[in-house]
Design a protein around this nucleic acid. Structure first.
Length: 482
RNA sequence: CGGGGCGUAGCGCAGUCCGGUUAGCGCGCCUGGUUCGGGACUAGGAGGCCGGAGGUUCGAAUCCUCUCGCCCCGACCA
């Protein structure tokens, strides 16, 4: 890239991060806006990323004992209204169907914003005794929350997600489940998305409506803002009580089940874009890249073009048989340079160039999306080295993202200091925390930042709360967030 | 819901203040030729109810009224 100009049609992320984000989505053909406000079309390339996420996560859910099921899109309005906190949290953003079949419905139907209520309704029928527990279900679905301010992938009126719902005999089991799934999400983010996350618990203000405790994984985006990548809730018996989800224990006593629910959404695609993208567009971590290796044949008018094509095809075939997602860009109406840029914008982690000169030298030229220098590898041993190269790219991207986050994480002791620093240095701010909801409101009003979470991993020791001055042993993380 | 911006070719825009023949530019697209190791060149070509409705005028993309929609920034949220 030797000092060449920035990618065409992409605003520099330093100039305007929000516009850069939109430009990348457009140029990489991830999504397009839809005729309905707040909704978006996920284009094939963007959807392919989501499918890779789904496939991996689904495997992790199965491996932890969950099975998939599907519950209806429409929920009787009365269901939502049963749990006080839940209604309060969701009523402003509900889409409600009042007419169908040519007439007004007796009871309006809510388009699910989440499925705790309808699932509890069914659980109460399915669960009789402790022998039916734990019940461990997941569903892949779309949900609708009427958004005032949509952003592609991050916040759309309709979005795709997965919601896990479990019921257990004891609080301890349900809490263990809550933490287990938070761990699954953290692992996924690190191992697949190459995004480091901070697992923690939400404050009361940020808690899911209806949960006892809400846990989160918080990731840092390229502008220093935080993004909640996934949530896992311990629901206690809140929904069980209103839906009478009960079981008979060993002593023949009726008990409420203890529950968890947890989810991640297409928002993760947005997280990927903003955690790894650069001025030239998208950068995809290899394990979530629809195309991991693109092979560009060069000199397609050259007398030896057919040799070049043969070598390219052979290489792709070999890689595919090894389980590497490789493809040859054999379009003959585009110059190599155009193709380089085309695939760079789309974030393909590894590119292989093969031309007559390479054939003469018995090697191919490689370029990593996350590095500037090109290098060569002998043809004889090239394909065998690709898996390790891809793993290396993953490790490098994870390290880059981690280093970036560390460089943007600050410790502050007073609210004044925080107020002064956060506008000029957006990032994660660690503070001693013993504040109330009112304190949080004040923080948000005066700085636009929020308490992202109280990390599970605490440093120990104690200090004075940066708002109240009270002694506390709790450290919290504050940031501006999406 | 507040504040700001924008609707003109598939995409990005100019033209609008100050009305005047056939509405322009770049990219993309189609056809031919030449090209191909970092966004190729060239010749020709296709493509528009100037967001919608009403008005003013001899004449409206341009002026007036009303509408619809989109985007950005804030409040709410995964």
């Amino acid at each position: 890239m030797r000092g060449k100009p920035m990618a065409k049609n992409i605003t520099s992320p330093e100039t305007d991060f929000a516009r850069w984000y939109q430009d990348v989505i457009r140029e990489a053909e991830l999504a397009d806006s839809a005729p309905v406000r707040g909704c978006m079309v996920i284009r094939p390339y963007g959807y392919a990323i989501w499918e890779l996420m789904q496939r991996d996560l689904d495997g992790r859910f199965k491996a932890t004992g969950h099975t998939n099921a599907y519950f209806p899109l429409f929920i009787p309005q009365s269901f939502i209204q049963k749990e006080a906190q839940h209604v309060e949290g969701f009523s402003p953003e509900l889409a409600v169907v009042t007419h169908a079949g040519g007439k007004q419905l007796e009871e309006p139907l809510v388009v699910r914003p989440t499925s705790e209520t309808i699932i509890n309704h069914m659980f109460s029928k399915w669960i009789g005794s402790y022998r039916d527990l734990p019940m461990l279900l997941n569903q892949w679905a779309n949900v609708v929350r009427w958004e005032l301010r949509p952003r592609a992938f991050l916040r759309t009126t309709e979005f795709l997600w997965q919601e896990g719902h479990t019921a257990h005999a004891t609080e301890q089991e349900a809490r263990e489940e809550t933490m287990r799934m938070l761990g699954v999400y953290s692992d996924f983010m690190r191992e697949m998305a190459a995004v480091p996350v901070i697992p923690g618990v939400k404050t009361e203000k940020e808690r899911f409506a209806g949960a006892v405790d809400t846990y989160t994984i918080e990731a840092m985006m390229g502008n220093g803002w935080a993004l909640q990548g996934g949530t896992s809730h311990y629901l206690g018996t809140n929904f069980a009580r209103v839906f009478e989800t009960t079981f008979l224990d060993r002593d023949n006593q009726r008990q409420f089940v203890h529950q968890s629910s947890w989810g991640v959404s297409t928002r993760l695609v947005g997280a990927l874009i903003m955690a790894h993208g650069d001025a030239n567009g998208l950068r995809l971590p290899p394990r979530l890249a629809p195309v991991q290796v693109v092979i560009i044949p060069i000199g397609m008018q050259d007398p030896r073009a057919s040799q070049v094509m043969e070598a390219s095809e052979a290489m792709a075939k070999e890689l595919l048989s090894m389980g590497v997602r490789a493809s040859v860009d054999s379009r003959d109406n585009m110059s190599p340079g155009f193709k380089f840029n085309h695939w760079e914008v789309r974030g393909v982690p590894l590119r292989i160039e093969i031309g007559p000169r390479d054939l003469d030298a018995g090697h191919a030229t490689l370029a990593q999306r996350n590095r500037k220098e090109k290098f060569t590898l002998p043809l004889a041993e090239l394909t065998g080295k690709i898996p390790a190269l891809l793993n290396g790219i993953h490790d490098q991207m994870l390290k880059e993202a981690t280093d970036f986050r560390e460089g943007r994480t600050f410790d502050v002791d007073t609210f004044d200091e925080f107020k002064r620093l956060i506008p000029e240095k957006p990032g994660f701010y660690r503070v001693w925390w013993d504040g109330s909801r009112e304190d949080e409101n004040r923080i948000q009003e005066e700085t636009s930042a929020t308490v992202r979470c109280i990390p599970l991993e605490q440093p120990g020791g104690e200090g004075e709360c940066f708002m109240t001055g009270r002694k506390t042993s709790t450290r919290a993380i504050l940031a501006r967030a999406y």
